[in-house]
């Protein structure tokens, strides 16, 4: 595999997790979660701390990443999001509140990085996480492990949402909060669980992305427009759409930069952020409701003739 392919795949699976986290939270609580930026960075910082202080592989620290991401989500829910949701705050207010939380997390991350440098002589401001990886079939192991982990997480999430009682209750709340409340579903618990899931997804996504890009304390802050682009490309209506959108954004960024730089020269590398944004704008022009708005079922039906429910 070409280097751009493997790192693109790693990066895209990270972006897919973060975009999925944004989408999940948006459909449940109407909150555009800016704090995903710092949650992603926390994922990277946790793995980096573990690997450089205690050794081993980056992958064995992923459970800690999940737990700490979930904790940041819970704190945000109880401290900030819950009072605002009960106050029926406007979408912009919800968005700004997560921005405030994000900035506080960012300052804590920066202070922690300073502390790491001072106490343990580590330097978390320019980290290449891939040096901690091992090789598998001539590729870095992350190329295989991370997309598989992403798919596994997605499958677990899918089964959670479709097969468990609580997952079904959660989907009911997403579909119609009033009706779900009337039939006895505790919306408070649904919100809490969605914050836990989305916090851990965001942190895990950040630790994935660090395997493909330079890890810095402002890593999430720099890439947050792309995470949002992924979520918007997915249509913000459906978690799978968000994950797919993040995947598309990440892959087009790497593939686009590679092929355009080959064609026009390396100056194009500086504008790499423009490529996914262009893809997002172009997609939204054709499908205003994002990828999940594409009437796939209809297209397939038209292609293969009417099979079900066909009445002459």
């Amino acid at each position: 595999m070409a280097p751009w392919m493997s790192s693109g795949l790693i990066y895209a699976s990270g972006l897919a997790m973060t975009a999925g986290s944004i989408t999940l939270l948006y459909i449940v609580t109407r909150t555009f979660n800016f704090a995903v930026a710092s949650m992603a960075t926390i994922g990277f910082i946790v793995v980096y701390t573990g690997v450089s202080l205690y050794g081993g592989l980056p992958y064995q620290y992923y459970p800690f990443v999940l737990i700490i991401g979930a904790i940041t989500g819970v704190i945000c829910y109880y401290g900030l999001n819950r009072p605002l949701l009960y106050r029926k705050a406007a979408e912009t207010t919800l968005m700004m509140s997560t921005l405030g939380y994000d900035l506080i997390l960012l300052s804590l991350i920066q202070m922690y990085s300073d502390y790491l440098t001072y106490t343990f002589k580590l330097f978390p401001r320019r980290v290449t996480m891939s040096v901690f990886d091992f090789e598998l079939y001539g590729e870095s192991a992350a190329t295989f492990i991370l997309p598989i982990t992403a798919i596994a997480c997605l499958t677990i999430l899918h089964f959670f949402l479709t097969k468990t009682k609580f997952g079904i209750a959660m989907r009911a709340t997403i579909e119609n909060p009033t009706l779900a409340g009337a039939s006895g579903i505790n919306s408070d618990r649904v919100y809490l669980v969605s914050w836990i899931i989305s916090g851990s997804m965001a942190a895990l996504g950040g630790s994935f992305m660090a395997m493909a890009m330079t890890g810095t304390p402002v890593m999430g802050m720099v890439t947050i427009p792309l995470m949002f682009a992924g979520a918007i490309l997915g249509g913000l209506g459906n978690i799978y759409g968000g994950i797919l959108g993040g995947m598309v954004i990440g892959l087009t960024e790497y593939a686009g930069v590679y092929f355009l730089a080959k064609q026009f020269g390396p100056w194009i590398l500086g504008y790499r952020m423009g490529i996914p944004l262009f893809i997002m704008a172009a997609t939204l022009l054709v499908f205003p409701r994002g990828l999940s708005g594409i009437p796939l079922g209809k297209i397939i039906k038209n292609l293969f003739g009417q099979k079900r429910g066909a009445s002459a």
Partner: peptide
Amino acid sequence: YTLLGAVI
């Protein structure tokens, strides 16, 4: 940053 976030 903490000040900014806390104010918001």
